[in-house]
C-alpha cells in the first residue's frame, strides 16, 4: 500500500458533488500515477467536466477526499493557491487573459505565483511558446488569434508554471475541425514528456492513442475503467458499448 502511494500523485476517493438536491457526481474514486495520461470519456452531462473542475477546486466537492501526494486538498489548512499552481488547467473556451498579450499571458502566473524574475519568466514563456509554435505571436492580443492558436497559447501558459499535473477540459470542443489537429498534436507531444495529464475529451482516436488509462463516466459514476485496449476493443458494460458504437464508424 505504501509503495503504491508513492507512485500515486493524485487519488480521488468517494467524491460527491451536489447542486442543491441534484447530485452530479455520485461516488467517484480513482488513482493517477505520476507520468500517467488518463482520459475521461462519456456522454455529455455525465459529470466529466465537473469532476475535472473539482480536482483543482474550481468547484467545491460536497463530499469525499482528493489526495495530492497523499495530502487531502480539502483540508481547511491546505494551501489551495500553491496546489493550483502545481495543477494546471486548459479550458474549453481557452480563457486567455484578454488584457494581456501572448507573452504576458504566459509570464504573469510565473511572476505572481512562482515569484520568478521577469527575465526568467520571459525565458520560460518563450521556450514554451516555441514548443507550441506560437513564438512568432508574442505581442498579439488573444482576440487577434484563431481558436486553435489561442488554445496553444493556453497550453503554453499552463506548462510555463511547470505543473505536476495538467488538466484538460474538452480542449478541442470549441474549435473548428481544421484546428483540432494542431491542438491534439501539441498535446500528444506533451504526453511524451512524461507530464501527468487528465484529459476530458470527445476525441476517441486521440484517447485511444495517447492514454495509459481510460475512464468511462456516465450519470455521475465511473461505469468502466481500464487500458485503452480494454475500453475501446473489449468494453464490458452496455452503456460503454452503446456510446462507443456512435464513434466506431467515423473515427476508430
Amino acid at each position: 500500500m505504501n509503495n503504491n502511494n508513492e507512485e500515486n500523485i493524485l487519488q480521488v476517493q468517494h467524491l460527491q458533488k451536489k447542486y442543491g438536491d441534484h447530485t452530479v457526481l455520485k461516488d467517484i474514486s480513482f488513482n493517477i500515477n505520476k507520468g500517467e495520461v488518463m482520459t475521461i470519456i462519456g456522454p455529455s452531462g455525465g459529470g466529466k467536466s465537473t469532476m475535472l473542475r473539482c480536482i483543482n477546486l474550481l468547484e467545491e466537492p460536497s463530499n469525499g477526499k482528493i489526495l495530492f501526494h497523499g495530502e487531502n486538498i480539502l483540508d481547511p489548512h491546505f494551501n489551495r493557491n500553491t496546489f493550483r499552481s502545481k495543477v494546471g488547467m486548459v479550458f474549453q473556451q481557452f480563457n486567455l487573459f484578454n488584457n494581456k498579450n501572448v507573452l504576458q499571458n504566459c509570464m504573469i502566473g510565473q511572476e505572481m505565483v512562482l515569484g520568478r524574475s521577469k527575465e526568467e519568466a520571459k525565458k520560460v514563456a518563450i521556450e514554451n511558446l516555441q514548443k507550441v509554435g506560437m513564438d512568432p505571436f508574442l505581442t498579439a492580443k488573444p482576440q487577434q488569434l484563431s481558436g486553435g492558436q489561442q488554445q496553444r497559447v493556453a497550453i503554453a501558459r499552463a506548462i510555463s508554471m511547470d505543473p505536476e499535473v495538467l488538466l484538460f477540459d474538452e480542449p478541442t470542443s470549441a474549435l473548428d475541425p481544421e484546428m483540432v489537429g494542431e491542438v491534439l498534436n501539441t498535446m500528444q507531444l506533451l504526453a511524451k514528456t512524461g507530464l501527468t495529464m487528465v484529459i476530458v475529451t470527445h476525441e476517441m482516436g486521440f484517447a485511444r492513442d495517447v492514454s495509459d488509462q481510460v475512464v468511462f463516466m456516465s450519470d455521475g459514476v465511473i461505469t468502466e475503467q481500464g487500458t485503452p485496449q480494454q475500453i475501446f476493443n473489449d468494453p464490458q458494460e452496455e452503456k460503454t458499448k452503446k456510446f462507443l458504437r456512435n464513434f466506431r464508424n467515423n473515427e476508430l
Binding site: 498579450n101 514548443k131 507550441v132 512568432p136 494542431e182 507531444l189
Partner: peptide, 22 residues
C-alpha cells in the same frame, strides 16, 4: 501586431520542441 519570426514555421508545432523530463 508584429510577427516575431517567419510565419511559415508557425503552421505546426515542431516534434523536436519538447524535451523529455524523465
Amino acid at each position: 501586431y508584429n510577427l516575431m519570426a517567419n510565419q511559415l514555421q508557425v503552421e505546426d508545432p515542431k516534434e523536436t520542441g519538447f524535451e523529455h523530463e524523465q
